[in-house]
């Protein structure tokens, strides 16, 4: 009996989350498509030909997977942090807290919403990329797995940000001052093989490097990082963040007095 209850509750949260970002598609889907178009125009078409090739690919082809991954990361994160904090701010999170839904179901619902938006935006940006360059998928299973695991990971990260956020500044600080630098330094626009050894080592502490490279490997077949290592790192981060989210929810931190 409870399984049906949980499934219905889960479906309800997912429908609510997807409807939310679909209803405001001008704020959620369109902006990444526009900004990624600008990346392709500036870095691909204008600057790219002067750079030449990277790891045997045209520069625009080389950066395309990173740009797609960047939009997935940002969208998954933004969806969950804004939705969860919005629910806290307007107090309608209480609708779920008073209902007979386990925290695992609440968390899964929000994460699925984040994954859905991440994938939707990733798909749109991929379509944009096809206007500028040819894209091949060398390893489809790896592509799908990395997209799924990365969007789950950043949905979880957005959830934690939403739990601790007390005002709207708190949900803007992390993306601006943590996420964006990590993405830009995560090998989206360059191979870390071009960096001095010390910076290569430092770059390896950036988890986004593993996601970008695993995704690039899935699409182009090249990576700065061993693919197995990349998957292990991504999975470890997912497990740690998932456990942390559940712990915070069970304790009621940020949502209960």
């Amino acid at each position: 009996m409870n399984t049906n209850l949980y499934l219905t509750a889960f479906k309800t949260i997912v429908i609510k989350e997807v409807s939310r970002f679909a209803r405001i598609w001008i704020q959620t889907i369109l902006p990444p498509a526009v900004s990624m178009t600008l990346y392709f125009v500036i870095f691909g078409n204008l600057i790219g030909p002067r750079i030449g090739t990277m790891e045997g690919f045209d520069y625009i082809q080389y950066i395309a997977p990173g740009i797609i991954m960047m939009s997935i990361i940002n969208s998954a994160y933004a969806n969950v942090v804004s939705s969860f904090f919005g629910a806290k701010f307007q107090r309608h999170i209480e609708e779920m807290l008073v209902a007979p839904i386990p925290n695992l179901v609440i968390l899964s619902g929000y994460i699925t919403g984040g994954v859905a938006r991440g994938m939707m935006v990733g798909f749109v940006v991929t379509l944009v990329a096809l206007f500028f360059t040819e894209l091949h998928i060398e390893h489809p299973v790896i592509v799908v797995s990395v997209v799924l695991l990365t969007s789950i990971l950043f949905s979880l990260a957005g959830f934690i940000n939403g739990i601790f956020a007390k005002n709207f500044d708190d949900i803007a600080i992390i993306p601006s001052f943590v996420l964006t630098p990590l993405i830009y330094l995560g090998g989206v626009f360059y191979s870390i093989n071009l960096l001095p050894e010390i910076w290569q080592l430092i770059s390896k502490f950036n988890p986004i490097l593993y996601m970008v490279n695993a995704f690039r490997y899935g699409m182009l077949g090249v990576s700065d990082i061993n693919i197995q290592t990349a998957f292990v790192i991504i999975i470890i981060f997912n497990v740690v963040l998932f456990s942390l989210c559940l712990y915070l929810l069970n304790k009621g931190i940020g949502i209960k007095s």
Binding site: T8, K11, T12, I13, A87, Q90, R91, H92, E95, A99
Partner: peptide, 27 residues
């Protein structure tokens, strides 16, 4: 429970609010 302070989404309509709440109870 009907709390003291308004605590539903300001962006949803009454029908959506009730349908969602029912869904949280497995209906």
């Amino acid at each position: 429970v009907a709390p003291q302070e308004v605590n539903f989404s300001q962006f949803e309509n009454p029908l959506e609010i009730l349908l969602n709440q029912a869904g949280y109870y497995g209906i």
